[in-house]
Amino acid sequence: MSTPSTSGHLSGESFRVDVDRRDDSAVVRLIGSCEMLEAERLTECMVTLAQESMKVIAVDLSQLDFIESTGLGAIIAGHLRLRHHQGELRLVGPQKPILRLLELTRLTQLFHVYPSVEAALAGSR
């Protein structure tokens, strides 16, 4: 996987990550099915992005069909790295099965979940 560029993506057969940088924030769109093979590449992507001095990373889950625990760990790894410089990772629009996964793991207590990318970037729920 290459380092995400200003607007870039990492792509597997059934999973894609689109990164859209906007000044001091970024939108990361997870598209398709994040399985065990892709999850480790997602970790690299999230950590690389979080190392930049972003204030907010909005992770758009609205087109994500599946994610397992390593993929959830990738999002958490990005959150931990972002927290080093007082940045915040926010989740956007998960479909029902993904929301259930977030609730079961209680990650909804760790992350704010927003209905849209715009709301997430603005911090308004």
């Binding site: 970790t43 397992e68 625990s69 959830l72 760990g73 958490i76 959150h79 079961l104 209680r106 760790l110």
Partner: peptide, 21 residues
């Protein structure tokens, strides 16, 4: 238990819990 507050932000350790859920 990865859902305990002290473990909630650990990137790993959710696999068994998810299988059981």
């Amino acid at each position: 238990d990865p859902t305990l507050p002290e473990f909630i932000d650990r990137p790993h350790g959710r696999g068994i819990m998810l299988m059981k859920a």
